[in-house]
Design a protein around this nucleic acid. Sequence first.
RNA 1: GGGCUUGUAGCUCAGGUGGUUAGAGCGCUACACUGAUAAUGUAGAGGUCCCUGGUUCGAGUCCAGGCAGGCCCA
Length: 1125
Amino acid sequence: MTYPEYKQPLDYAKLATDVRASWDANGIFKKSVSSREGQPTFVFYEGPPSANGQPGIHHVMARAVKDIFCRYQTQLGKQVPRKGGWDTHGLPIELQVEKELGITKEDIGHKISVEDYNQRCRETVMRFKAQWDELTQQMGYWVDLDDPYITFEPEYIESCWALLKKLYDKGFLYKGYTIQPYSPAAGTGLSSHELNQPGTYKDVKDTTIVAQFKVVRDAASEKLFASEGVGETYILAWTTTPWTLPANTGLAVGKNIPYVLVSTFNPYTAAPVRVVLAKALVSKYFSEKGAAAPFEGYAEGDKKVLPWRVEAEFTGADLVGIHYERLFNTEAGFPHFEGEENAFRVIVGDFVTTEDGTGIVHISPTFGADDFRVAQLNGIPALMVADDQGKLGPIVDRTGRYVAEMGEFGGRWVKNYDGHDQSGADYKTLDESIAIRMRTNGTAFKTEKYEHTYPHCWRTDKPVLYYPLDSWFIKTTAVKDRLIELNKTINWKPESTGTGRFGNWLENLVDWNLSRSRYWGTPLPIWRTQDRTEEICIGSIAELKAEIDKAVAAEVMTHNPYANGEKIDLHRPYVDDIFLVSPSGQPMYREPDLIDVWFDSGAVPYAQWHYPFENQEVFQKNFPADFIAEGVDQTRGWFFTLHALAVMLEDSVAFKNVIANGLVLDKNGNKMSKRLGNAVDPFATIAQYGPDATRWYMISNAPPWDNLKFDQAGITEVQRRFFGTLFNTYSFFALYANLDGFQVSPTPLPVAERTELDRWILSKLQSLLAEVRGHFDSYDPTKAARAIQDFVTDQLSNWYVRLSRRRFWKGELTTDKQAAYETLHECLSTVAQLMAPIAPFFADWLYGNLTKGQTAAESVHLTYLAEANTMLIDKALEERMELAQRISSLTHSLRKKSVLKVRQPLQRILVPVLNDTTKEQVGLVEDLICAEVNVKHIEFLDDTSGVLVKSVKPNFKRLGQVYGPRLKAVGARIQTLTSDELTQLEKQGELAVEVEGETLTLHLDEVEIRTQDLPGWLVATDGPLTVALDVTLTDELRQEGLARELVNRLQNLRKDSGLEVQDRISVTLAASAPTELQAAVQSFGDYIRTEVQALRLDFVPEVADGAVLEFDDFQVPAKVDVVTT
RNA sequence: GGGCUUGUAGCUCAGGUGGUUAGAGCGCUACACUGAUAAUGUAGAGGUCCCUGGUUCGAGUCCAGGCAGGCCCA
């Protein structure tokens, strides 16, 4: 076979499309799965994208991460099925449809039927599917696009229903309430989307109250009574919604906020009191004068300054657990409520600040989302009142009035929702009435009008209430401990997302609110009777059909719409038109909610297989996932719902390894957006740079979990530096391998018999193999990419190939040359394998070029990655080669300083060595160094030479352990060691020195001794290494240098004349050339002829129509002719 | 406001368990090299390691508090 040769520059984009065509033609992706049949599976779940928008460059990033590990595991021999999927439900799609139709949610059911609306959603959601599929293939993301799961399909929804029913049967599904924005005037809940409409937040003036909550004296509160005093002790809390005070059931403090206990008087009753408030807010309520004002003589109605004294200080944590008395109690005619004995306690609220108020927040769980949440976390009940039918509800009804049970305030409007006349002189709002009552009975510390912004209903302009609305929940809190426990077994990349963001989320878990009041989504499969005493949860289509039949028999429905085996649609409005019959014969109506779309995606492991209705075994084999990867923004989304459902349904994790990748930002670190015009088009990027360089750049530049600042200049660099170098290395190989007709031998020369350089690069290759496997195994693709890149550019290309060039282009195909080809071939094909997960097209192209027609796999992606052969790893060899590299570099540096070009041979370099191992190590690579830097030999200088000047440096790490604080003095003493002392230390291993009047014994391991200088020589040093160059030029060296110059000029001439590498030539030079050149030709004629592949090299009196060779000091006419034999 | 995260050269990034002189690549400047050549070598310029305190003989690294960016949540 021949190895294909390519012209520069390589078209990377075309290369990829060619490879893609061959994958398609030969079904390589399918084979990569089918060829692993019967092997252990590596389970991967595709987090479904939504195809209602165009894909962006960040999708290339996210999907490259997924692809890498699936391909890698395939190389390890695992079978990796990859089912694609589409996320099709959810608010963004509804909003998009509404925008396009120019309607709002209000119009659904009026201007457009639910049926038509949902039809629009169904069409919209797959609008960009073709683009997505195209990008998937262009970027080389292998996922099964032929048989994807789609969340709106009846089978998918049926699976969701089955899961819901399972949760229902386990008692995990219940109906409760959440606090949501609610408009009493409109009688409807408002979405956060509606609340974010412009103009909804208005400035209003409300009555505000700082209320006094009377502390109950017991063990928990005893610290507040440490100093005896007159009067009761109260906790102060501020509210801008006094009408919620009768619903108060708790008080929240900040855990680390400092609070003080202050002695003073109630300003309205003049009763002596002690009050608790945040230290930072004392000045807001008490004047500086009052701190010195006398307590005696302060009386009701006094306009005098309020006297006060700080009695004690606490933190919020100290106050937790203190009980206080109910403000509006039963004696005053307010109702009892369930769980009252657990109420009226101080708890911690993470939202408490000292920005305003008193630093203590009044909690009414029925009228605040934060309140509800912390109350639930702390077991504080909500104040619910039973109506005349016994149904529990908040103290405010749905029209915005206090319920009748609210004593003196019963039936009062919370805000003016009915538009009643407020102009009368005696008119009082409910807030004002409450304020008056509290001032009178001494429970208000301060009341005032206060202007603030408050949200209003966009339709009625009336203030919004935060109000408890019905919702269905999944009781995730019931399995909280198990969720936390199992999370600890998940390998998170980065770890902090698992312990931090996700872990904290689990620690503060509340029940999963499943309800959504929308149209396009999976309907909740629960039917209830009107009196709510009977209900049924449907778990399958079959069950639904059977229940409909029952309903038809009971004449609740006229006929079964699913009877004729038509394609069933489980969406609204169809399911809403189904009425079932209860065991007692009552009609049952579907609960109108849809479920959270996150349930859809959390159900992927089950619903993608239509489990449990089909594919039981497939499911078992593919649960849980070994690996998933999505954006870190999915932490509380997909990652959570997958985990929650798996724990509740299977008592298992859903995934064992997860990468939470960061964002792709523009090159300035700004978020990409179409509006700003800084979004990068993935198609254009791939078309310009090809998918491989794009992927390699994204993966190698920063770890996937860091944000990536996407800069196209970075792709260019990757292309040039990595792919360009690798391509050049291959081209070099192909050029000479074809000339020599090299074929990979079935019985290659044993590695042990190959040259030092071969064994070195093979050792490095095996080290690389081990390293890269390690990085891939621990889900760190960035380190893998960087390791491969460094190997290719620094080791393989820039050292192995550079130093081996002559072996490839000189002479016949000897055993040594064959070994060189074998070695380079092995390096290149292994690199192709290692890079294949990241750069799948280029790797396959490279691998194919190297192996086509031989007994190799059809594609690199079907190959098996070998284990690193540790027998071939020779650390000592790797170390001494590094010495060779460093000595060469130092020598180049010296040549540079002495203005001696590398072409000028020099006699020797001197390397001082202080121990025999270094000498031995360098000795083994002497030939390589000499060839690289063009010197005749290396001379070692050891201690006995007597010319070395040594320097000593303290080993601070060691000294620090021994001497601690005295290190500075000891270090200084070491710097001043004389050479005699040094010699003694070296010979005897220790040395007694005096430091600060004390005698210490220094040991050899406490210092670092190195040679510093060779008197009379130009030296260069790199750490402990020192090199000196002998710059003496003899006539012979000069001649040889000149011979090399001539070779160089002739090579250039060959090249310029367009000669092929293998062409033999005859050279004629003008006899007018200077005598030194003639002498050089005389002495080194054989060398020159060999180098330039000349059969003849002659001086002639006249060179006709030749070129002129330019030397530093002279010119020589010359001519090169091809000799045909 | 809370949780998490990032901050090192003009840019992109490395810098186990603390060790005194903080590195690489790109870019820039200069010189060299030239049968791998859009490659390579050598040298140079370029740093308050975000800030402030603390622990320590010693802090880019550990602790506390800030500042700035990002994500999620409220």
